[in-house]
Simulated scan of single mutants.
Amino acid sequence: MSDMEDEVLFEVTKKHLETGLRGIPVGFCNTSAVDPTKGLCYRGLDIASLCRWQPERVMYLIFYGSEGSSEEIEKFSNDLKSRAFLSHKTKKYINALPREGTVMQILRCALGIVSMVEGCGNYKEDALNIMAKMPQLVAGSINHHAGWGQTPESNPDLSLTDNFIHLLNFPDKNSSLLSEAMRLFAVVHFDHGGGNLSAFVGKAVASGLEDMYGSLIASFSALSGLRHGSANMKSIELVKQVRALLGEKLDEKELSTLIETWLSEGCLIYGFGHAVLKVEDPRATLLYDWALQHPQISKHELIETAVFLRKNVPPLLQKKKKMSSPHPNVDAISGSVLSAASFDYPEYFTAIFALFRSVGIVSQILYEREHAREGKGTPILRPRYIPTL
Rank of each mutant, 00 (worst) to 15 (best):
4 M>D: 13
39 G>H: 02
50 L>R: 04
67 E>V: 14
67 E>R: 06
70 S>G: 11
71 E>N: 12
82 S>V: 04
83 R>P: 07
92 K>I: 09
93 Y>C: 00
100 E>R: 09
113 I>T: 04
113 I>N: 00
116 M>R: 08
120 C>Q: 12
127 A>S: 15
128 L>Q: 09
129 N>C: 12
134 M>F: 11
135 P>K: 02
139 A>H: 01
143 N>S: 09
147 G>I: 08
151 T>W: 05
152 P>S: 15
153 E>G: 14
156 P>I: 02
157 D>H: 11
160 L>E: 08
169 N>C: 13
176 S>D: 07
176 S>K: 08
176 S>A: 07
177 L>W: 04
186 A>G: 02
186 A>V: 04
192 H>V: 08
201 V>W: 01
203 K>I: 15
204 A>S: 08
207 S>V: 08
207 S>W: 15
207 S>R: 10
210 E>I: 07
221 S>N: 13
228 H>P: 01
232 N>S: 04
232 N>T: 12
239 V>T: 12
242 V>T: 02
245 L>M: 13
250 L>H: 06
257 T>C: 13
260 E>Y: 10
263 L>Y: 09
276 V>H: 07
279 V>R: 08
279 V>K: 10
284 A>C: 07
289 D>K: 07
311 K>N: 15
321 K>D: 13
326 P>K: 01
328 P>T: 03
330 V>G: 05
331 D>S: 08
336 S>C: 14
342 S>F: 03
351 A>Q: 14
352 I>S: 12
353 F>T: 02
354 A>N: 09
362 V>K: 07
362 V>T: 06
363 S>A: 01
363 S>C: 05
370 E>P: 00
371 H>T: 13
372 A>H: 11
386 I>S: 10
389 L>A: 10
